[in-house]
Nucleic acid binder design. Sequence first.
DNA 1: CTTGAGAGCTGAACCGCATTAGTGCATGCT
DNA 2: AGCATGCACTAATGCGGTTCAGCTCTCAAG
Lengths: 336, 336
Amino acid sequence: MKDIARHAGVSQSAVSFALNGRPGVSEDTRDRVRQVAEELGWRPSTAARALSGEGAATVGFVLARPADTLGVDSFFLQLVSGIQEVLAERHLGLLFQVVEDVADECAVYRRWWAEHRVDGVLVVDPRTADPRPDLLDELGLPAVVIGGAPDERHPGLSTVWADDAGAMASVVDGLYSLGHRRIVHIAGLPGLAHTERRIRTLRAEAERRGLSGVRSVTTDYSDAEGAAVTRRVLESADPPTALIYDNDVMAVAGAAAATELGRSVPADVSVVSWEDSALCRMVKPWLSALSRDSVEFGRTAARELTALLDGGPARTVRVPVPRLIERGSTGAAREA
Amino acid sequence: MKDIARHAGVSQSAVSFALNGRPGVSEDTRDRVRQVAEELGWRPSTAARALSGEGAATVGFVLARPADTLGVDSFFLQLVSGIQEVLAERHLGLLFQVVEDVADECAVYRRWWAEHRVDGVLVVDPRTADPRPDLLDELGLPAVVIGGAPDERHPGLSTVWADDAGAMASVVDGLYSLGHRRIVHIAGLPGLAHTERRIRTLRAEAERRGLSGVRSVTTDYSDAEGAAVTRRVLESADPPTALIYDNDVMAVAGAAAATELGRSVPADVSVVSWEDSALCRMVKPWLSALSRDSVEFGRTAARELTALLDGGPARTVRVPVPRLIERGSTGAAREA
DNA sequence: CTTGAGAGCTGAACCGCATTAGTGCATGCT
DNA sequence: AGCATGCACTAATGCGGTTCAGCTCTCAAG
């Protein structure tokens, strides 16, 4: 900026005013300064900007997962891609970190905030007993929780969520009307907020209809557990006629396991995947799946965060309920 | 730091010396200062550090992919996870960005470097005619190219690579000894350095053995193209007896397509996937696959970058050749 | 007893920007 | 003519660190 000031024949502060669109300089001077800056290829140093109170121009994103669990999962890349789209418009950087568990994640938030590395964070995989909202509140770190339920205990946090409960209800509804009475839900990690929401809703739906052969089993989301649980429930005394899997990986593995056991999909057992991806179209029959727009989900979350950074109020935004794409893996229940 | 200085009864510079392990203070004072800093929960502001010449303590990672291509791909997440492991030890942040194409990627490097946002970058998906090494050279931005071939034209860049050529040769060797003479390689994106390396090696191997029914077909890595190409080559006049797919997604889609055409795997056609993941164990038969340790790959790349940041020389590191995991999808060629 | 060297510490400058409190000048108003 | 007003701009300060040139002691060597 000193160089620009010299070349343009003005003071450094005039340059600052000109380049930041603030009043205090004539349009003439502003244009001249802009042009000189352009010629010199000037870019503001984010460090200096941050030091003088402008914030870090960066938001943080932490993924708490053991390295080996990071498997075939299209959701996060898509989410991040959507987030980026919005952040890029405002030239905000995304600081990304993978850690082992939520405790480490909290430590990262503490450090980032203390070091002024980020202006806000995006939180994923909210849990039922989650230390993070409390921490973020305590720190005063602006944050958007992705996938959480509305949470009136933390008015400072924005939330972006999909209505799992509604989706689960509609899936059960669909299966019920196809004649299914015994349904097993192969759920994801216990403790995750959306896992528990789905489980609760399923139970409520079952009770409402007086169904006894309906239950949820939690897993670690892996193909191995998906297949194992599938085998177990299909070989049990009173096997289900429909299976709902909490992700695509388990659904595919589960469908394969069912086929191996000599059960035909969907004649013997219907399969629904709670996540749509290319995977669901790589097996025969193609899997019926709940489809949501993960990229748009990311965009929405990022928009909420930028709104928060602009000083806007925390909000709770609901993205559209995922809709069921009917493919070949769901059909009428076989007569008992 | 001013507070710490006051509490410890020393000057601010003494605090700086003490906390950064520099000489100039007694061990007594150092301990005292450290303790006060601890009590006050002090953390250095990265912005201030960066401003006074210490660098940004951040490395950049750009993924140039259209949003919709970010599908089922375990490689990148694993790579990033490995990178993180190494960076986290040194408290280096990872600035992550997804862009549409290489031109945008170059713009991001320019901006990051000009804004002093990063100290170095990790470059993936090198191409045959790639503008990035030239740009990085020109900028003087420390960088590690992941997956490129050794490149003596850019002595400033480090390279971490796997020997695709060797791996391809050994795969062809294995298939040849199983009696396969007609092999089709369903390759990835043309223009990617490793795609071209594999294609060249395959051709060389074929010529060496006087095989005429061997060729490569490039694709966009998608399941759709993988399946389409598979159908096309299998229905051609002189169909191959073995297929090599450049990623797991295409291999699975291709195997499914072959089965649909009534070809049995591996009796009629052998399938090899150039990427191992849970996907390969989700279909019957399980796919034989080239397995590499993507997490370790990431660690190695990150280590090279930190070495570069420490002022070390640029190096070219070769990670172990991926090894073929023989599963059920490869077998002896059917007699002609 | 003087001198020199080194250890331990301080004060001030600096990094690149934003911001605030002036400064000088032309203009309009009375 | 005298004065307030507003505009265009400058000088100075601060953000939170690092660094470098001293400065003061102490202690050993001469």
